[in-house]
Nucleic acid binder design. Structure first.
Lengths: 351, 351
DNA sequence: ATGAAAGCGCTAACAT
DNA sequence: ATGTTAGCGCTTTCAT
């Protein structure tokens, strides 16, 4: 721990005015001699400009914020990677905030309110739920916000979205092509934006196939443990069937489409608990195509939503708006892509 | 997006001086009438104080930083949870930075240098490598730093450590008690602090057992893919043996002690690739006891290093130092604890 | 209880 | 090319 030097001290030591010192340090007009003197003085003193003073004067902090609901979900880590790449290239520093529960003391709303104090020059946000309060807060914020997700048309906010409904449909089509006909949908909370979209995608996809027997189930959140629990109820409603009974029963689904990878892995565990072979008796698919797909066995078929790419695009939108605050809000979209792995294909399941 | 109001505007609207407005808003001496007027004006204008101006005047930002090498490793997410709990309770806001590669453009060193600009009031750091440069930067920083990890004695920095050498020894003892005698150590880079400590723990533990045949191997980093690759070389040195040959060979280890969970899961995959049964033919243990231990099958025996608790303790140390910068540096330690699961016990492996 | 004014550290006119 | 000065928005003496 050490005392900080101010520009005044540097100027004094260099024997020049504070203005000259500032100019020399910032590469503006200054004689080589002055630059040399000032630079040496700054080095001697270990001078670094004060962020608060600079921000106050310049009206910007050089800092950007990325806010996610749950940094424990690898999909957000991947998004962050994409954001970080672009943000760093643009000369900004990135800070990450995990808002956790949407209503806690560190809710997204508090975060945006805090942003109005000027902690950062911009925000990238990937909200699970888009409430009227959130939209109001978004409209009232003095710093640019880019949302990764889906917003009402009139929101007038830069947005990067994807078609996760189509993504789920891709999974259903794939399973149908593999001969699966009793397909269960394992959703997260239906009142979330992704929950609603994926549910819609599932409903529409199975509606196109009259030969499919479909059912829908909701886990309490998008986590593995919630998925495991919900999948248990889904696969073994009475909670007391034997493996043989379950496997033989036409009531037991032959495929589970989960709304994200965490839920899908929960389903994988439930299937194992109940002795149902994956993919032999039961196929499982996820959404997000996170690194977890390769961690489990069999590896998990999953719909890629190009998280890293979405992060990059969001960061690019933000930087562009920072340059030109008046430009029209833009909505970008990336297509989903099914990644087939062992959990849904009997042939690929055996190596 | 919206314009920000300043205190001056609030004061004007309330018909009082800027000083009175400040006092009223901050709950200092002010008549009820003034408080009422000012509060109303502030509400009307949607006033929030400017963070930069406040920080410049007060000399502190109310912000703390938590820096980790790789936010993709769940152990850091867990640490962060602990940090966040304490930091929030203390009224500070937390920002997280993933420094990635130690030498990249966003290295820890840059981070600490940035901190000298006054972006945050304090830093919690969990470095993989403790270089002389890092120590120098630590000594020169004007804001308090707490390190989670191990530092040279003379560093004079608040530290939260654990005995990961003992942790690895715990794993070795457990495996020995289970009858394993050909134990391989799968380390990460040996030039890292945890790498060195865990290596030492392994060497000492096996030295106490003359009947153990030990070997040591290094992965290029602490990731799953590096672990898988290194485990392949470890289990199948020629790269062309059949499963039967490997299983029958006395040269093939009957246990792998990995230096963290990611490496251990890599080893699990390598074992599966090669057809070696876990835990039947090969036991595997990890370190960190992350959530990943429950994701894999068989579930992973792992040494808990109480990551969340260490995060809490680090945050408490930091807050205490913020209150009293003069207090003597403190070193806290938490003990390791072995969590036995399916990957190391033949009985527990069969459910 | 309230107002006037100084000043945190810095940058950017403006003048020389 | 360099120095003087105003001022970013806020808190806090110091008078009154």
């Amino acid at each position: 721990m050490v005392q900080r030097a101010t520009l005044t001290q540097v100027a004094q030591r260099a024997g020049v005015s504070i203005a000259s010192a500032s100019r020399a340090l910032n590469g503006l007009v200054a004689s080589p001699a002055t630059v040399e003197k000032v630079r040496r003085a700054a080095d001697d003193l270990g001078y670094v400009p004060d962020a608060s003073a600079r921000a106050l004067k310049m009206g910007s902090t050089g800092q950007l914020t990325f806010a996610v609901d749950d940094i424990g979900n690898p999909v957000y880590v991947e998004m962050m990677t994409g954001v970080q790449e672009v943000v760093a290239a643009g000369g900004y520093r990135l800070q990450v905030t995990s808002t956790g529960a949407t209503s806690g003391p560190h809710s997204v709303l508090d975060l945006i309110r805090n942003l109005r104090r000027g902690y950062a020059d911009g925000l990238i946000l990937s909200p699970l739920r888009v409430t009227p309060e959130l939209l109001a807060e978004l409209a009232a914020t003095p710093v640019p916000v880019v949302v990764i997700g889906r917003l009402p048309q009139h929101a007038g906010v830069d947005t990067v979205m994807t078609d996760s409904a189509l993504g789920v449909a891709l999974a259903v089509e794939h399973l149908h092509a593999q001969g699966r006909r009793r397909i269960a949908f394992l959703n997260g909370p239906g009142d979330t934006t992704p929950g609603a979209a994926r549910r819609r995608g599932f409903d529409e996809a199975v509606a196109a196939h009259p030969d499919v027997v479909a059912s829908t189930h909701e886990a309490v959140d998008f986590t593995m443990s919630a998925g495991r629990e919900a999948a248990h109820r889904l696969l073994d409603p009475t909670g007391r069937s034997t493996t043989a009974e379950l496997a033989a029963s036409p009531g037991t689904p032959d495929a589970v489409v989960a709304a994200n990878d965490l839920l899908a892995i929960g389903a994988l565990h439930a299937a194992h608990d109940l002795g149902l072979d994956v993919p032999g008796r039961l196929a499982v698919t996820g959404v997000d195509d996170t690194s977890l797909t390769e961690i489990v066995h069999p590896s998990l078929t999953s719909v890629s939503l190009a998280s890293r790419r979405r992060g990059q695009l969001a960061a690019e939108l933000l930087m562009r708006r920072l340059e030109d605050p008046a430009r029209a809000p833009q909505v970008l979209s990336v297509p989903p892509l099914l990644q087939v792995r062992g959990s849904s294909t009997t042939t690929a399941g055996i190596r």
